[in-house]
Amino acid sequence: MNWNKLTEAAQIDEIKALSKEKPVLIFKHSTRCSISSMSLDRLLRKWKDQDLEKVTPYFLDLIAYRQLSDQVATEFKIPHESPQVILIQNAEAIYSNSHFGISYGELMEKV
């Protein structure tokens, strides 16, 4: 899967603009958390190349970019969790889930 890396605050405005054309997925990942690694692996095992036609994925390493992770939480009015998926459409969060609640099937239903 080709993730777009979320590393700068300016990208939040880009994500909002992109989400008006196609939903954007943000995956907030903690590189220090085994649950986060398992949730990411479960998502990646089911991900299909054609999913990129439906949703634009962003990956946020919240250990390296914790302030940015907090900014995403504030901007989209979603409490911070880790791991976490946030689905953005029309510049607003329309879905979020965390930990073992992260489900490829449920996520794709929302897209």
Rank of each mutant, 00 (worst) to 15 (best):
Glu14Asp: 13
Glu14Trp: 05
Glu14Gln: 14
Ile15Asn: 06
Ile15Leu: 13
Lys16Thr: 09
Lys16Gly: 11
Ala17Asn: 12
Ala17Gly: 03
Leu18Ser: 13
Leu18Thr: 11
Lys20His: 09
Lys20Gln: 10
Lys22Glu: 12
Lys22Arg: 15
Pro23Ile: 01
Pro23Cys: 00
Val24Lys: 01
Val24Gly: 09
Val24Asp: 09
Leu25Met: 02
Ile26Thr: 05
Ile26Gly: 00
Ile26Trp: 06
Ile26Pro: 05
Ile26Asp: 05
Lys28Ile: 13
Lys28His: 07
Lys28Tyr: 05
His29Glu: 05
His29Ile: 02
His29Leu: 07
Arg32His: 12
Cys33Gly: 11
Ser34His: 14
Ser34Pro: 12
Ser34Asp: 13
Ser34Phe: 14
Ile35Ser: 03
Ile35Tyr: 00
Ser36Ile: 04
Ser36Asn: 12
Ser36Tyr: 03
Ser36Arg: 06
Ser37Gly: 12
Met38Arg: 14
Ser39Ile: 03
Ser39Phe: 05
Leu40Met: 14
Leu40Gln: 09
Leu40Glu: 08
Asp41Trp: 10
Arg42Gln: 13
Leu43Tyr: 08
Leu44Glu: 15
Arg45Trp: 00
Arg45Phe: 10
Arg45Ile: 07
Lys46Asn: 14
Trp47Thr: 08
Trp47Ala: 07
Trp47Met: 05
Trp47His: 11
Trp47Phe: 14
Lys48Val: 03
Lys48Glu: 13
Lys48Ala: 11
Lys48Leu: 05
Lys48Met: 09
Asp49Ser: 13
Asp49Ala: 15
Gln50Trp: 05
Gln50Thr: 12
Gln50Gly: 06
Gln50Glu: 15
Asp51Gly: 07
Leu52Glu: 07
Leu52Ile: 03
Leu52Gly: 06
Glu53Gly: 07
Lys54Arg: 00
Lys54Ile: 03
Thr56Phe: 00
Thr56Arg: 02
Pro57Gly: 04
Pro57Lys: 05
Pro57Ser: 08
Pro57Phe: 04
Pro57His: 04
Tyr58Ile: 11
Tyr58Gly: 08
Tyr58Val: 06
Tyr58Glu: 10
Phe59His: 07
Phe59Asp: 01
Leu60Cys: 08
Asp61Cys: 09
Asp61Ile: 13
Asp61Asn: 15
Ile63Pro: 00
